[in-house]
Amino acid sequence: MQQRQRIIELNVNGETHTLAVEPQRTLLEVLRDNLGLTGAKRGCDQGYCNACTVLVDGKAVNSCLILAVRAQGKRITTIEGLSHNGRMHPLQEAFVNRGAIQCGFCTPGMVLTAKALLDANPDPSEMQIRRAISGNLCRCTGYVKVVEAIKEAARVLKTGGAA
């Protein structure tokens, strides 16, 4: 079932990668298998759990639902691109400090969804936060501390704590 590979250029976390990929490969597969960026999780491969969320040109996207070849020319940010030299983004810090992480499998997708929200709306209401993460399924936290963490990060970012 080998398909002819195509050469594509992907801009991921500020670096450009030249890759040979089969045209049917999803962005999630290429991030995980070709680039070793396993922070994006394969939770369902159907677009229902959002554990594979990455940012594409700043928007939260299910990387299991777009083909890698279609991501050419776009700016892709994965969870690995959010911290710099081990220094966490305020959202990541808030998730840690507020106890919003349990098993952690949904965390990368949850954090990036929150990042897209706060970039577009720095001062969201609780309902707007809940709506934004309503597609990110979590079986551990009941979302309580996740919502608290996003609120806290919004406060920190507004007062200039941006990473």
Binding site: T38, T78, E80, V96, N97, I101
Partner: peptide, 23 residues
């Protein structure tokens, strides 16, 4: 004490390796 979990930073930064991540 309300201490953040020791493994949370690795999970928050996408460094935590789950079984499917291993190669």
């Amino acid at each position: 004490k309300r201490l953040p979990r020791i493994d949370s930073p690795a999970k928050a930064m996408g460094q935590a390796k789950y079984a499917a991540d291993l190669v």
